[in-house]
Design a protein around this nucleic acid. Sequence first.
DNA 1: GCAAAAGTGTTTGGTCTACACCCATGA
DNA 2: TCATGGGTGTAGACCAAACACTTTTGC
Lengths: 238, 238
Amino acid sequence: MAKNTLISENKQTDIWNQNLSIPIPTLDIVIFTVYRGELCVVLLKNENNEYTLPGWIIAAGYSLEQNFDNILERKTGITGVYKEQLYTFWEVNRDKRGHTLSIAYYALVWVDKFLSAVDFTKVEIVKYDNLGEKQIWNKVTKVGFDHAEIISYANQRLKWKLEYTNVAKDMLWKSFRLSQLQEVYEIVLWKKLDKRNFQKKLMKLGIVQETGKLDKTTNRPAKLYEFVDEELKVYEVL
Amino acid sequence: MAKNTLISENKQTDIWNQNLSIPIPTLDIVIFTVYRGELCVVLLKNENNEYTLPGWIIAAGYSLEQNFDNILERKTGITGVYKEQLYTFWEVNRDKRGHTLSIAYYALVWVDKFLSAVDFTKVEIVKYDNLGEKQIWNKVTKVGFDHAEIISYANQRLKWKLEYTNVAKDMLWKSFRLSQLQEVYEIVLWKKLDKRNFQKKLMKLGIVQETGKLDKTTNRPAKLYEFVDEELKVYEVL
DNA sequence: GCAAAAGTGTTTGGTCTACACCCATGA
DNA sequence: TCATGGGTGTAGACCAAACACTTTTGC
């Protein structure tokens, strides 16, 4: 805990009362994970039973990375995830406490890691497809728009990344069967894929390679694969 | 002038002295135009002869749009351009005056409009390919990196947009010959294109259409074309 | 008549999609 | 022996790239 509480919440709450001439920069995080066969988002619930994205005021003197890690850990308990900046949102009336500016990130976390790290007293996990039924936070209309818009935007970006990068590595074990990888793709892209075409595409792009090992936990053993690159890599389609 | 000086510079300069616990949000603009057959960027020069992007502190109480328009007009004289948010950059030591956070935009402006609106006492126009020779602003190393990085990122985004959208409409007259459009593409993408393949792609995507008029200003008259959509549109490749 | 730019089709290779049957193993 | 999921190939449609000659006009 200690290492990541450099940035105190208290030091910052008085910011709201200063009537500044600049907007207050905040950082909001859309956390995705594949849980029980569905794409899910990790959300907080506020005093009005509205769902909100984990987020907080950005502290000067620390990098965006540090701010991100700190906010994520403080709000959810999770550490060390894949993250990517999405977009910076702005609305004069975005927050009734003052003018804010939200730098939105999305994060991907492998479900096992998520479950062992997350603090369920703080967060809820909500199926992406059920978001429509929830009250997502928006101060103006009190109807889902603002944070919901950010989540939807994050989902689009995630889909794009799946098609052209090895970002799926952050949602699986080190080694896996192709059918498990395909399942992740089908859940996120929200469509069925053809097994053979899927495998051909992976091989052509060179995203995964055989490990030489077999997974014997089902009837017929399956080859285990791993990602070729440890780091995020964009594979050109050409 | 009046309409766009809602936001005063003076009201904001004292921000630097308040030792805030939050970073100061600024907005920086990469302005592209095609000038004399080359892709160019509009820059300011600071007291140390370093080039900087037009930018300023973001004012609370105004939308990002309003802030953008105001900064662009105050710093360069230009109004009403195509704009798109790029990325939000952050570095603790980005600016020696304090911790800042830069929301970067890029803008496209048709050269004729640019020349009639721009205030050349404030800005310089620099060829994109010559940027390497210039000192681009960066407070830490005093060598081109920070703003240069933003410009390079903007250029990548612009190239992508040209391939998949009708964004080129913001760099040409209402009607034009296909060869003129192709020239813009070649300049921005920095490569030669095949005339027939280029035209086939435009027609297949349905980006442009014939106006029925001819341009007779060169030896052999050429058909004049126009963009099908007034608004920015992403054309799916399928 | 010549210089300058416009106009115009075809071929080829590659990539994407759709599609169905047999195999290895554990129970 | 049967149920489960693993493994494998081909044909057709579509798209992208390469490529060169003729036409219209002004001078």
